[in-house]
Amino acid sequence: MKANIFPAIRLTAVCLLFFSGIYTLIVWSVAQLAPNKGKGAIVTTNGKTYYSNIGQKFTEDKYFYSRPSAVGYNAAGAGGSNKGPSNPDYLKEVQARIDTFLVHNPGIQKSAIPSDIVTASGGGLDPHISVQAANIQIKRIAKIRAISEENLQQLIISNTEKPLGGILGTERINVLKLNIALDNLK
């Protein structure tokens, strides 16, 4: 044991220098060439800057809603609800979200509501919703903003992110980008 202590301490120090120091510095240096210098991807509109991957809370009726979030979309400390599938309080909460959604979206069938718009995401910062979740909000937004439903439909189609290479993963819509496009639609 004794013969190992000093080599072990010295080896740990060298590893610290190399893996925490040099490795980190290499990644950091290359990151200076990345979009926004490795400070997170951003989207700019009308002089305002947002993080394009970090979802935002959209609860006003004039915007497409984002998903519920366990942390209120505050990216200072992200997290999920961690509610189990059988938890009675949780199921009541989902039921209440469905009821609220129906009140704000008259004329929408309950069976048309997809579950992603009434359940919270894992990180609480999900920037996306499903295409169906956007489509069922067209009626409400068309009425409030006095825009034709066809125009909104077009907006959704042009903001739909296809599966990777057309064949891998999900089809989805970035709510932030969709709502920015919505605000710019005049």
Binding site: S111, P114, V118, S121, R172
Partner: peptide
């Protein structure tokens, strides 16, 4: 989640509580 199916909404993406739309 069958408990959510009972509420009468649809789950085209599956059980979405705690999941991200970009992964499915």
């Amino acid at each position: 989640n069958p408990a959510i199916s009972k509420m009468g909404i649809t789950q085209p993406m599956g059980s979405m509580e705690g999941k991200e739309v970009r992964f499915g």
